[in-house]
């Protein structure tokens, strides 16, 4: 039974990794948001599995909250914003699809190289999860750097946030409910603020290309 649980854990973790990677190479913004939603749901599943395997009942609540907020509410806000502001559905990529794919691979290698030696320190479930969480953080960071649209940058930060959540699960069996609630509230604020910010940007510059911020240079 426990081994089944661990297998499920690994499958869910692979889903997190793969969604991050596909989101990295995907051109369509809506698809990216949906990938983010899937990733968040997978993380919620992981949360529940960890709660079951290591009898940490609070993690059920965390997982449920995570599914509701990151898996449903945030993606919904993002999709609405995209439609309202009439942001073109194509991501404007600074790095080509091929380059991005390679960069994603690089992130994975770097994460394994850096975190690999640390994993024996931590007990299961960390062993597999920690390199994946670092990879997801790095991928999210790369998304913020390599996309021209402010919308993509918000998405990248959300992906990073998921990576941090996974790391928290891996290392501490959940960051603790209170902390998680704080982070969730933070994310919500981020979503609202970025929504306002995107509106303002649209009004001021008539564009959502972060490059126009260059004109603010002193």
């Amino acid at each position: 039974m426990t081994s089944d649980g661990l297998l499920l854990l690994e499958i869910a973790a692979s889903v997190v990794l793969v969604t991050a990677w596909i989101a990295l190479v995907h051109r369509r913004l809506d698809a990216q948001v949906r990938l983010y939603a899937i990733q968040s749901l997978a993380l919620a599943v992981i949360s529940g599995l960890v709660a079951y395997l290591y009898s940490a009942p609070l993690l059920y609540l965390t997982g449920a909250l995570f599914a509701a907020l990151n898996g449903a509410l945030l993606p919904w806000i993002l999709l609405t914003v995209r439609r309202e502001l009439r942001i073109p559905p194509e991501a404007n990529m600074l790095v080509s699809v091929r380059g991005s794919a390679l960069a994603g691979l690089g992130c994975l290698l770097l994460a394994v190289a850096v975190v690999g030696p640390l994993t024996p320190l931590a007990a299961v479930p960390a062993a597999g999860l920690l390199p994946i969480s670092v990879t997801v953080v790095l991928v999210g960071l790369f998304v913020t750097v390599s996309r021209r649209k402010a919308f993509s940058q918000v998405l990248g930060i959300l992906v990073m946030e998921n990576g941090v959540f996974l790391a928290g699960l891996a290392l501490t069996y959940g960051l603790g409910l209170l902390l998680e609630l704080g982070i969730a509230a933070n994310l919500l604020v981020l979503a609202i603020v970025s929504r306002l910010f995107l509106h303002r940007m649209k009004d001021s510059f008539d564009s959502l290309d972060a490059d126009v911020l260059r004109s603010l240079e002193g």
Partner: peptide, 11 residues
């Protein structure tokens, strides 16, 4: 002044 440059520095 480009936000991508600053993000790239961080990365």
């Amino acid at each position: 002044g480009g936000i991508h440059a600053y993000l790239a520095y961080m990365v």
